[in-house]
């Protein structure tokens, strides 16, 4: 089997590491600490693929059957 890029698989949504400013904006909008966002492990295949490190926040854009497009965020933790 050739090299497999999991980010290109159609069932894997779009992931993007957010910038400091974006994170700050998101925190303000939601009124939460970074730790209050849902978590994602550093060892997650996607974390590895996009090079996310503990402390990063990842933006996920998915196709949704009910909302068309939905945005979620993950806080990367070690492990």
């Amino acid at each position: 089997m050739g090299k497999f890029d999991l980010l290109k698989h159609e069932l894997v949504p779009q992931f993007r590491i957010m910038t400091k400013e974006e994170i700050e904006q998101l925190r303000k909008n939601l009124g939460v600490r970074k730790e209050d966002l849902p978590w994602m492990l550093k060892s997650d295949p996607v974390s590895k693929a996009i090079g996310a490190k503990p402390g990063d926040v990842v933006e996920i854009i998915r196709k949704s059957p009910v909302a068309g497009k939905s945005v979620a965020y993950r806080y990367v933790v070690p492990g």
Partner: peptide, 22 residues
């Protein structure tokens, strides 16, 4: 009220209830 789904400690479970807020 902002349509996020949260636990008792304010941690976020869904960013918009049921993705569409309906």
């Amino acid at each position: 009220y902002d349509l996020t789904v949260r636990g008792t400690d304010g941690s976020i479970i869904q960013f918009r209830y049921g993705e569409d807020g309906v």
